[in-house]
Amino acid sequence: MAKALLGYLGGPTPDQVRETAALRRRVSDLENEVLRLKVENDGLLATLRERVDLVTAEDLAEPVAH
């Protein structure tokens, strides 16, 4: 079955090798992007927690001026 998928004679074609390399690079790029976004998200969550900690019950009870 594997021979049918890769071709009966020889291994993968040069086009398949290039496509596999390109796909691996793309996966690596996407993994790096996910990591970057996680770090950014963690920073945003930390900032949000700091701001929420600064809000007091009195701040919440006061009416908002429009």
Rank of each mutant, 00 (worst) to 15 (best):
D59A: 01
V27S: 04
L60Y: 01
V17C: 01
H66G: 08
V55L: 13
L5D: 08
L48W: 05
Q16L: 03
N41Q: 13
L30S: 03
A57D: 14
L37V: 01
L37P: 00
Q16I: 03
E33V: 05
T13V: 00
D15W: 06
L6V: 14
R51Q: 14
V34A: 12
D15G: 13
T13A: 02
D42Q: 15
L45I: 08
D42W: 05
S28L: 10
H66A: 14
Y8D: 11
A21L: 11
V17Q: 02
R26N: 06
T47A: 13
T56H: 01
L23I: 08
V55P: 05
Y8R: 08
T13E: 03
A61G: 03
T13M: 00
L37T: 00
H66C: 08
L60V: 05
Y8G: 04
T47P: 02
L37H: 03
T56Q: 00
V39R: 12
R49D: 15
Q16Y: 04
L9I: 08
R24V: 08
T47G: 09
V52T: 05
V27W: 05
L54S: 14
S28K: 14
L54W: 05
P12A: 15
L60R: 09
A2N: 13
H66R: 11
V55G: 07
R36K: 12
A4W: 10
D29M: 03
L54H: 10
S28C: 10
K3S: 11
A57R: 13
P14F: 01
L5I: 15
L30G: 03
L48S: 08
L30Q: 12
L45A: 13
G43R: 04
D15L: 09
E40S: 13
V34I: 15
V64W: 09
L6A: 13
L48P: 04
L9D: 11
A46N: 06
E50M: 07
V64Y: 13
V64R: 06
A46T: 08
D53L: 11
D53T: 10
E58N: 11
D15V: 06
S28Y: 10
L44T: 01
P63V: 11
N32V: 08
M1S: 12
V52W: 03
T20A: 15
L44D: 02
P14A: 04
G11W: 01
Y8V: 09
V39K: 12
R49T: 09
L30I: 11
A46K: 08
A65Y: 09
V27C: 03
M1G: 14
L45K: 14
L37W: 01
R26S: 06
L44G: 01
L44V: 02
E33G: 06
V64A: 09
N41P: 03
E40F: 07
R26P: 03
E50T: 10
